[in-house]
Design a protein around this nucleic acid. Structure first.
Lengths: 191, 191
DNA sequence: TCCCCTACGGGACAAATGTCCCCTGCCCTT
DNA sequence: AAGGGCAGGGGACATTTGTCCCGTAGGGGA
């Protein structure tokens, strides 16, 4: 829980009072999931957004051929959940599962909304995250339409060098939207 | 200006008072640009976000080889601008130019922030847009990493059937991240 | 301890996509 | 009215990417 407090304080640029911390703590629920357990499955409504305290998760879809496509990775200090399902209450197309034993802090939409409405550090944080999300999503769209797989891989390494250590190559390939074969060729060329 | 008022009212689900309309009107600046004129050029800081009253625009980058990559189209009732440059005050990588004679309503970040802080319809609208933006950006990322060009084209047609009439095929191809050749082949197959 | 599953890489081939020509017709400008 | 530029499409070919085999090594679970 301390990590979450620190997160709100850093992102908002303000300090939380003890009272606010108590209120935040009362709205989040600690959850532990083991490797390969699911936080969300295709068809579910995403009722919770989750802050990763420790561990790692992936958000992915499965197509008709059974291929998995990873939309997001999440590690300590990141949020996971399907925005669309969470805000519109529609069934999700995605699955979220854990890549290792993971500790989460989960919250419902109404509880989150209440914290946003009453704690300025929370509302500032959410606004900041939301803006960041748009910016990074647009960067990724731009990368997808304008860069070669090789350039996208290089950019990923530059932005998140730890991903290569943390996640297996087949997942990296899936995240980049390429086959493991192409990723393998890229890695051969660059060494 | 009426279109903008209606836009805020619909998106926020609330009505604007005459006073609020006046305040909004005083912060936006009407701007007319003719076909091929630029609203933003690579290297500029994006000082204004613009609401398109009438006309059409595109946001695109130019790579080392001189190829253009269209990140966004905008038509009547849409916003154009580079989020990253606008919020972080960094030089933009994008160009925005008009695809026909266009009427815009432009606003600076500080003026927009003031309207957000003082008019609840505006703040609700911006929050709603922001959420929508994230959702649609994630859909587009998902499409890019999980679908074939053919599927992406079909999805684009389903979502924005008017794009095909409104924009030339080379721009559609650029938006989809494929060559005009591939787009041509797709269109031949589907008829 | 053993076994199985998974990650990872290689080779051969197929399929998809891009590039570079060409040509045509149309619109806009002069 | 004429000319220039651009959208669009076709053919031939190169390149990239994916698919389907295969094998190996290592780690986790029974």
């Amino acid at each position: 829980m301390e990590l979450l407090f620190a997160y709100f304080e850093v992102k908002s640029g303000t300090l939380l009072t003890d009272m606010e911390k108590k209120r935040i703590a009362s709205r989040f629920l600690a959850k532990r999931l083991r490797k390969r357990q699911y936080l969300l499955q295709e068809g579910d409504i995403c009722k919770y957004f989750s802050f990763i305290v420790q561990g790692a998760a992936r958000t992915y879809s499965v197509d008709e051929k059974g291929n998995e496509h990873i939309l997001h990775f999440g590690t300590s200090g990141w949020w996971v959940g399907d925005n669309e399902s969470f805000t519109l209450h529609t069934p999700t197309r995605y699955n979220i599962d854990m890549l290792g034993d993971t500790e989460l802090l989960v919250i419902t939409e109404s509880d989150l909304q209440e914290l946003i409405d009453t704690i300025s550090a929370v509302s500032k944080t959410i606004a900041a995250i939301s803006s960041q999300r748009v910016i990074s999503a647009e960067k990724r769209i731009h990368a997808a339409i304008s860069q070669t797989p090789e350039e996208r891989f290089a950019a990923l390494n530059a932005a998140y060098p730890d991903f290569l250590q943390k996640f297996p190559l087949n997942m990296i390939a899936s995240y980049l939207g390429i086959s493991t074969k192409t990723l393998g060729r890229i890695r051969n060329n660059s060494k």
